[in-house]
């Protein structure tokens, strides 16, 4: 069984534990398929991925004053921003709609939930 292994600096691949690896083809990884960025301009933002299965998705939001990046889902106590996915699309939903928050959504090739 062939494999590709890269260990961290000053660590031999012969003695490296999984956590010591930069890359080890024995393990699975999050493989990024597409990254969407944009502004939440409506209560529901629909992003098409067309993978034909529900992918693993990670989302972030830039919001607030001063603005900072937060991981989704997020609530500041008033506005709630969430996302979900089906076999065709990613949906970002914000209630109540804010004043143009910025989002980043990373869609992985990995099957999600």
């Amino acid at each position: 069984m062939s494999k590709l292994v890269i260990s961290k600096p000053n660590i031999s691949i012969e003695s490296a534990r999984p956590r010591d690896m930069v890359f080890d083809s024995n393990y699975n990884y999050i493989k990024i398929y597409k990254i969407f960025t944009g502004t939440i301009s409506s209560a529901t933002i629909t992003l098409s991925h067309n993978l034909n299965y529900v992918p693993l998705v990670f989302g972030w939001l830039k919001s607030g004053t001063p603005s900072s990046w937060v991981m989704l889902p997020y609530s500041d106590g008033t506005t709630k921003t969430v996302y979900d996915a089906d076999v065709t699309n990613i949906y970002i939903r914000q209630d109540p709609l804010g004043s143009g928050d910025t989002y980043v959504v990373a869609v992985a090739f990995n099957r999600g939930v």
């Binding site: 998705v57 990670f58 989302g59 937060v70 991981m71 989704l72 889902p73 997020y74 609530s75 709630k80 969430v82 979900d84 939903r93 209630d95 999600g112 939930v113």
Partner: peptide, 19 residues
């Protein structure tokens, strides 16, 4: 329901929009 990722901002409501 719909799957929601849990984030570390404790107390965040994960559900809205009649999930």
């Amino acid at each position: 329901g719909r799957f929601r990722m849990a984030t570390n901002n404790n107390g965040v409501s994960l559900v809205n929009y009649n999930e």
